[in-house]
């Protein structure tokens, strides 16, 4: 399986209470591509991501990941390929010590203890948090928690990275570090975020969704600089592109 293709064909999802969150989403992400998922609160971004990892199963339509169609039976296999970084690191880090948390995934993959140890150290090294290895997660800062949460996923060596708001609640420097980290990954990436500057920096492709439907799908440069399109979808130009010249008051 060297081709980590993510393909969605006309995906619908309704929550048990009847809310229709996804209304016919189709797209195809090829190997190594990084895609930003943009839309207002409640547009369906998180629902879409949860579908990609089999936490929710589409009510209609098809999702296939690395040519494996998603169903209840293939969920386990798909979760090995898809590394999911959740929105809140406190939900993601559930073990009492950072090291154990990062080791949780690799142990469940059935690796030997030496291999687990190697992976944990490598993953923590990669996000620059090796020195936090023996700390309890509740003693970390938000930025550190976020980095460790990414390490927990990287330790499983996923083919595809799915992230829900990776940049929220971070101070500017931590955010910059995160962006550099994400740029360094060669994985196929799907990132949902409101931070349009980050999307512009990290993702070459961007998908805008509104009310459970795709409104636009194209290169980030093109979509995120199209002011009318963004405003129609309750978004605005990335801050870095808003004012190139600041007018002086005289």
């Amino acid at each position: 399986m060297s081709h980590h293709i993510v393909e969605l064909k006309d995906v619908f999802y309704s929550y048990p209470d009847g809310t229709e969150a996804l209304k016919g989403i189709s797209f195809r992400v090829i190997h190594g591509e990084s895609v930003g998922l943009v839309g207002t609160n409640g547009a369906g971004k998180t629902t879409l991501l949860l579908n990609l990892n089999g936490h929710l199963i589409p009510t209609r339509g098809e999702i296939s990941i690395g040519e494996v169609p998603l169903s209840k039976g293939t969920r386990q296999e798909i979760r090995r390929k898809v590394g999911f970084v959740f929105q809140r690191p406190d939900d993601q880090l559930f073990m009492p010590i950072v090291y154990e948390d990062v080791a949780f995934g690799p142990i469940n993959l059935g690796l030997s203890m030496e291999k687990v140890d190697e992976r944990v150290n490598n993953a923590l090294e990669m996000v620059g948090c090796l020195h936090l290895k023996n700390r309890p997660p509740h003693r970390l800062s938000e930025g550190q928690k976020r980095s460790v949460a990414i390490a927990t996923v990287m330790a499983m060596k996923p083919d595809i990275l799915v992230m829900d708001e990776p940049g929220s609640n971070l101070d500017p420097k931590s955010r910059r570090q995160l962006i550099n980290l994400l740029k360094g990954f060669r994985h196929t990436k799907i990132i949902a975020s409101h931070d349009l500057d980050m999307i512009l920096d990290v993702c070459e492709r961007c998908i805008i969704i509104k009310d459970g439907k795709i409104v636009a799908d194209g290169s980030s440069e093109e979509l995120l600089l199209n002011e009318t399109l963004l405003e129609e979808n309750n978004l605005e130009l990335p801050l870095s592109r808003q004012y190139l010249y600041v007018k002086r008051p005289f």
Binding site: V82, F86, D91, Q92, F94, N108, M156
Partner: peptide
């Protein structure tokens, strides 16, 4: 519920 999801996505069985 969210924690359980995070556990599942890392191979919890």
């Amino acid at each position: 519920e969210r924690i359980y999801r995070a556990m599942l996505s890392r191979g919890f069985r």
